[in-house]
C-alpha cells in the first residue's frame, strides 16, 4: 500500500475516534456542569485541558462557561480540536483515499460530515448531538468491520483507532486524576460521570457490585483486558495490528508495542498507585506519543 494511503487511513480512523471521545467527554461535562459544585460540578474546563485548547479558549472567550465551552468544543470550525473539525478531518482523509475504502464506508463518513454541518447551524452542542456523534462513529466502525477487506488498510485503520483511544483514556484519567489520587474519597456522581464517559458504567457495577472507588475505576480503565476502552485493551489491539503489517521497516514500532502490552498485562493496580498515578500516566502518554511517531516513521511518511 502507498505510504500516503496508509497515512490517510490512519488519520481518518484517529479523527473519527477523537470525535467520538470528545462527544463522550462533552456529554459527561454537560451532565456534571448541572451538578452542584460540591458534588464535582462546575468543572467545565476539563474538555479544554484535555484537548490542549484552554489557552485558545481563554484568549477568545475568557472565563470558561458551560454552554460556551460546549459550543467551542462542538461546532467551532476555528477550533481544530472541535468535534466538527475532527469530523471534517476524518472526512477529508477519507476523501483523499476514497478509492481505497468501500463505498459504504465512504458514504457513512461523508453523510456524517454533511449532517454535522447541519447540526452546527443549529447552535449549541447538546445531548442529542453527542448521542448522534457516538452513533455515527459506531456506524462507521460497523461499516468498516462489515465491508473492509482484511488487508493492511484495515490494520492501519484499527491502529489509528486504538492509538487515539489509548491516548484519550490516559488523558481522561490524567485530567480527573485529583479524583483518583485520593483513592477512598469516592464521590459517587463524579465517578459515575467518568465511567459513563467511557461507556463503562454498567461494566463497573457488574464487576464490583459496589459504589465506585478510585482504585477500582483505575483498575478498570487501565488494566482490564475485557474493557474495550481500557489502556490494556488498546495496547493488546495495537500490538496485534502492528504485528500483522508486512515488511521489516516497523521493527522499532513493533518492539515498543510489545513492551507496552507486556508492561500493562503484568502490572497490578497497587503498583500503579504506589508509584504515583500522575507519574504513571505521564509515562504512558509519553510512550503512546513515541509509538505514534515510530509508526509514522516506519510506514506513513512519504519520504
Amino acid at each position: 500500500m502507498l505510504s500516503r494511503t496508509a497515512d490517510h487511513l490512519f488519520w481518518m480512523a484517529r479523527q473519527m475516534e477523537r470525535a467520538e471521545n470528545l462527544a463522550r467527554l462533552l456529554d459527561v461535562s454537560l451532565a456534571v456542569s448541572l451538578l452542584p459544585a460540591s458534588r464535582g460540578g462546575a468543572d467545565v474546563s476539563a474538555p479544554l485541558v484535555l484537548t490542549g485548547t484552554l489557552d485558545a479558549y481563554l484568549a477568545r472567550h475568557g472565563e470558561p462557561d458551560a454552554s460556551r465551552v460546549l459550543a467551542f468544543m462542538s461546532f467551532d470550525a476555528g477550533n481544530p480540536s472541535s468535534i466538527l473539525s475532527c469530523i471534517r478531518h476524518a472526512r477529508d482523509n477519507a476523501h483523499a483515499v476514497r478509492g481505497k475504502i468501500t463505498a459504504e464506508m465512504w458514504m457513512s463518513i461523508n453523510a456524517t460530515w454533511l449532517e454535522a454541518r447541519e447540526f452546527a447551524q443549529g447552535g449549541a452542542g447538546d445531548q442529542a448531538f453527542f448521542d448522534w456523534v457516538k452513533e455515527r462513529s459506531h456506524l462507521f466502525r460497523g461499516a468498516t468491520h462489515g465491508t473492509c477487506q482484511r488487508t493492511d488498510a484495515f490494520s492501519f485503520i484499527r491502529l489509528g483507532t486504538f492509538i487515539e483511544r489509548a491516548d484519550n483514556t490516559a488523558r481522561l484519567l490524567e485530567v480527573k486524576r485529583h479524583l483518583l489520587d485520593d483513592a477512598d474519597a469516592a464521590d459517587y456522581y463524579a465517578w459515575s460521570a467518568l465511567l459513563r464517559a467511557v461507556g463503562a458504567f454498567e461494566a463497573y457495577h457488574a464487576l464490583y457490585r459496589d459504589a465506585p472507588s478510585g482504585r477500582r475505576v483505575a483498575e478498570l480503565l487501565l488494566l482490564r483486558p475485557d474493557m474495550p476502552r481500557s489502556l490494556r485493551a488498546c495496547f493488546d489491539e495495537i500490538y496485534k495490528w502492528l504485528a500483522r503489517l508486512e515488511g521489516d521497516n516497523g521493527r522499532a514500532a513493533k518492539r515498543l508495542a510489545a513492551e507496552l502490552r507486556a508492561a500493562q498485562a503484568y502490572t497490578s493496580v497497587d503498583e500503579v498507585f504506589d508509584a504515583g498515578l500522575h507519574d504513571y500516566l505521564t509515562r504512558m502518554l509519553g510512550d503512546i506519543t513515541r509509538l505514534g511517531a515510530l509508526v509514522h516513521e516506519a510506514y506513513l511518511e512519504a519520504a
Binding site: A6, V97, R98, G99, L245, N249
Partner: peptide
C-alpha cells in the same frame, strides 16, 4: 483506480531512481 483495482498515486508518491519509476509503499 478503484474499479480497476490499481493504486491512485500523486506525484509525491512516486520517485525516479536510475531512470526507473517507483512508488513509496508501506512495504518499501
Amino acid at each position: 483506480a478503484q474499479q480497476m483495482g490499481v493504486e491512485l498515486v500523486e506525484g509525491r508518491d512516486l520517485f525516479v531512481r536510475d531512470d526507473h519509476v517507483y512508488m513509496r509503499t508501506t512495504a518499501g
